[in-house]
């Protein structure tokens, strides 16, 4: 290839960078929420750097075709820079959806169970052995009790069993959202959008029972990263759980099991026989998993079968 082609070749990237700079300059007066402008400048810098590396390599390649080691080393440098860029891209949080899509198509085992896990929120998975147990006092307010993970899980199972699980699941995911630091708005927004899609928008797979006003407030918000976005909804739902589910929970099998486990954990003594049957007025004849309401799946267990089988297992 003649040297007369080298000039237009180099001109293209230069034009590209110039265009980027001009556009960024044109919009610099807009006040972005998350400093996108700074990101843009940074991106231009990275582009300039990589194009510079490429241009140098290209020119050296063209001019010194006879030096072998130069040919090899320029190509090596290009490769290394390229791989650095790829690694950098995947470590930035905005590439998260792409990563999850890729891992989904590749292998099932990469499938994350919850959005919290996918976003790498600490402590978002299921229970671990060293979570603290607690002595549950039914007189304590529910919102305090639910902060304990073990209790929350037991309560969630109970709520699922009476087809009212969405409130607890929602509470759980909002708790995970709270764990994301406020200075990581990108991550927060992913989580918030996930929660809205799953629980808030009309017709969502696990839509929660909240008032029109609260729902509208969330759906029309201008600031998705606002720390109190779900406060009203959580309040309403805690109220709902408190009035509805809490009372029945204390007389359910799930609470008995929970207490038993707690006793087993604190003292490793032989657990006393709990002669409890399911006194709760909640569902006994209909058992169906409530993850997110498998409508076609109606299992017809005999009534109170749960109570019986757990009884006989002891």
């Amino acid at each position: 290839m003649g040297t007369q082609w080298a000039v237009p070749y180099i001109c293209f990237p230069l034009l590209y960078i110039a265009a980027l700079v001009v556009i960024t300059g044109a919009i610099h007066h807009i006040e972005f929420k998350f400093d996108e402008l700074k990101d843009l400048w940074r991106a231009i810098l990275v582009t300039v750097f990589s194009i510079g590396v490429w241009a140098v390599a290209y020119v050296l390649n063209e001019t010194h075709e006879e030096i072998r080691w130069l040919q090899v080393s320029t190509r090596c440098v290009l490769l290394v820079v390229g791989s650095f860029l790829v690694v950098a891209f995947f470590s930035v949080s905005f590439s998260q959806p792409l990563v999850s899509v890729m891992s989904l198509t590749k292998k099932e085992s990469f499938n994350m169970k919850t959005m919290g896990e996918a976003l790498g929120i600490p402590d978002s998975g299921l229970l671990s052995q060293n979570d603290p147990t607690l002595d549950v006092d039914p007189n304590e307010p529910l919102d305090k009790l639910l902060l304990n993970k073990r209790f929350r899980l037991s309560f969630m199972q109970f709520a699922d069993s009476c087809l009212a699980g969405e409130s607890v699941h929602f509470y759980n995911e909002v708790q995970q959202l709270e764990k994301i630091p406020v200075n990581d708005p990108v991550k927060r927004i992913y989580m918030v959008r996930h929660i809205i899609e799953k629980y808030i928008s009309t017709g969502a797979p696990m839509e929660v029972n909240i008032s029109h006003r609260t729902r509208q407030e969330i759906l029309t918000t201008l600031d998705l990263a606002h720390p109190d976005l779900f406060k009203n909804a959580v309040n309403e739902l805690l109220q709902l759980m408190n009035m509805n589910l809490a009372k029945d929970y204390w007389s359910s099998m799930y609470f008995l099991k929970f207490k038993e486990e707690a006793a087993m954990r604190s003292v490793d003594h032989e657990l006393e026989q709990v002669n409890g049957w399911n006194f709760s007025p909640r569902l006994s004849s209909v058992h169906c998993p409530d993850d997110p309401f498998y409508q076609d799946h109606i299992s017809r267990d005999p009534p109170s079968h749960d109570a019986y089988s757990s009884y006989s297992r002891r």
Partner: peptide, 26 residues
Amino acid sequence: RVRTTGVVEIQFSPVGENKKSGEVYR
């Protein structure tokens, strides 16, 4: 006023003043 969520059930048999109706309802 309590907004119900989920499902609640009860089993009963309407007992008249003098005789049982015999039907059991859930």
